[in-house]
Amino acid sequence: MGRAITGADHPVVLYVLGGNTQVIAYAEQRYRIFGETLDIAVGNCLDRFARALQISNDPAPGYNIEQLAKQGGRVLLDLPYAVKGMDCSFSGILTRAEELAAQMKAGNGKGPDGEPFTGADLCFSLQETVFAMLVEITERAMAHVGSSQVLIVGGVGCNERLQEMMGLMAADRGGSVYATDERFCIDNGIMIAHAGLLAYETGFRTPLEESTCTQRFRTDEVLVKWRK
C-alpha cells in the first residue's frame, strides 16, 4: 500500500503505529520482521509521556510533543539509549523521562548545564533519542538487505523531525525516504482493503461466510504473491 502511493520500489519499512513498532523488509515472498520493540511501542511511549507532562490530546499527543519540541533544544537531556542489534526498547526511556518531568514540576530539574530545563527541552530530548534509535535500526536493516530506500508507515511517521532524520540517513546511503501522509498513515481500513485487492488480483479467494478477523496477524505471516 505504501508502495503504491509513494512509488518506492524495494524499501525497508519502518512501521510505527501506536501499538506496534517494527522494521520490515521484503525477502522471498514475505515481509520479514528484521527488528521490533522488545517492550512498548514508540507511539505508546510518546502518548504516555504526553500524559505525564499533561500535554493535550488535541489533535494528537505526538503532534503536540512535536510542536513543543520545536521550542526546546537549548540542552539535550541524558536519556537511556536502548538498541540491541535490530531491536529496541522504550520503557526505560519512558521511565526516565517521567522522572525528569516530575523533577521539573517539583522545581528541581537541572539540565547538564546546571540550568533548569523546560517541558519543551524534555520533548526535544525525548524525540531526538527515540527517533535516533528508530533510524539506527532501520539503517541496520537497510545494510542487511542492501536497500537504500525507506518507507515510513504509521502515525508517528507523520512527525517531520523523524522524516528529516530518516532523510539524512538515507541520503548518506545514496537513497531516499518515502512517507505517506496523514490520510494513509492512520487508516487501517484502507490498508486492509488494499492488501485484499492485491491478493484478489493474484487469484486469492475467501468466500464471505468464511471471512474472519485475525487481530493478531503478524506481518510476516502473510504470503505475498503479488510481488516478485
Binding site: A132, M165, M169, D172
Partner: peptide, 13 residues
C-alpha cells in the same frame, strides 16, 4: 559521525 543524530548524542554513543 552520523549526520542524523544530535551531535551530543552522537558523540556519547
Amino acid at each position: 559521525p552520523k549526520p542524523y543524530r544530535h551531535p551530543i548524542l552522537d558523540a556519547r554513543l
